[in-house]
């Protein structure tokens, strides 16, 4: 988790009292700020638990296809024999749970729910992480420029951020992703939906990162080590990349981690409303739509995708909170 911090001692001349880890290794205590942060992080049980769950989820998402192949889990295979034809409900107790289908099968089609949850995980994480990267890219570029150059540049960027923040994002995302049709960007089907979701969610969430980066840059800009660098003849780009960026890694990492769960909820909401990932591709939000449509047949179904989303969001939030406390103890 702290790997990027320990490699960022580029500005070792920075002040030892620099609040953010990564500002440089202070040799006096024999512990780098990264190590101090790691010690602090390890003490936070909830954050460690969150981190472990996150690692597990990422592995599950990354290895979704191999896992499905090895355990013979097909997310789109119908098992009509497991569904009661009259009620459309899975046969047996607990939504048709059995050794063969540990989480049961879905009503109507009898598709294996474990396979669909695994299948949904890579979609969900890909969209959430992709969108976060988009937000971080736009937010960091504009935030640093606004914070460093100030003046009218800052006014324009800040107004832009206010404008974005003044909108109900979900509604905009609904209308945007509802109106994109096949063939846009030369993509169709699932790749198009994923690309659109990443772009739409990322595009609307960047001001959250932008604001934080701008504020941090503004306070860093006035610090002595930046002044020293400038007096030695360093120009804007050098100062931004060599002096400011290493100090911005920690807050960016923290807020990116906290943005991921928001984006997971965002994607699930869009898929739930029918403008995100389209069926038959399994997605957690889409599974909840099925559950909502068929709650009379199978009331337990909704807990499978619902808890998948909840656990994922909770884990990322705990990890993010823990990282924030460890890296920036002064913030709350």
């Amino acid at each position: 988790m702290t790997a990027p911090l320990e490699t960022t001692s580029a500005s070792a001349e920075a002040q030892p009292e620099a609040v953010l880890a990564g500002a440089g290794a202070s040799q006096i205590e024999g512990r780098s700020l990264g190590q101090i942060a790691w010690t602090r992080f390890k003490r936070d049980k909830a954050a460690v638990a969150g981190g472990i769950v996150v690692i597990g989820l990422v592995l599950m998402a990354a290895l979704a296809k191999p896992i499905q192949a090895v355990f013979d889990l097909d997310p789109n295979k119908f098992h009509q024999d497991l569904v009661d034809p009259a009620l459309q409900a899975p046969k047996g107790a607990w939504g048709g749970m059995s050794w063969e289908h540990p989480l049961g099968v879905d009503p109507g089609f009898g598709r294996d729910l474990l396979a669909r949850v695994i299948e949904g995980s890579w979609v969900s994480l890909l969209v959430a992480v992709g969108a976060t990267l988009v937000s971080v890219t736009i937010g960091v570029i504009l935030g640093v420029i606004a914070g460093y150059y100030g003046g009218w540049v800052d006014s324009v960027v800040s107004r832009l951020m206010d404008t974005f923040l003044a909108f109900p994002l979900l509604l905009f995302a609904i209308s945007l992703s509802a109106s994109v049709q096949d063939g846009f960007w030369g993509l169709t089907g699932l790749p198009l939906r994923i690309a659109v979701l990443i772009f739409v969610i990322g595009f609307f969430a960047w001001p959250y990162i932008g604001r934080i980066v701008r504020a941090q840059t503004m306070s860093l800009r006035e610090r002595e080590f930046v002044e020293a660098s400038r007096s030695l003849g360093a120009r804007g780009p050098f100062i931004i990349f060599r002096e400011l960026m290493p100090n911005l890694v920690a807050p960016i990492l923290v807020y990116a981690t906290l943005l991921i769960p928001t984006n997971i909820l965002f994607e699930a909401a869009l898929s739930f409303l029918g403008v995100g990932i389209a069926p038959p591709q399994a997605s957690w939000g889409g599974m909840l739509t099925d559950a909502a449509d068929r709650y009379e047949a199978d009331l337990q179904y909704m807990f499978v995708p619902g808890l998948a989303i909840f656990i994922t969001v909770l884990a990322f939030n705990l990890l993010g909170d823990g990282l924030r406390d460890a890296l920036d103890p002064r913030s709350k």
Binding site: P261, M302, G306, I309
Partner: peptide, 23 residues
């Protein structure tokens, strides 16, 4: 409050509807 923030609104809606309205 942590649960409230992490639970998807529509999932909570389905749970409440399932328990208090349907069951």
């Amino acid at each position: 409050s942590l649960i409230g923030i992490c639970i998807p609104v529509f999932f909570l809606a389905l749970i409440l509807k399932g328990i208090f309205a349907v069951e």
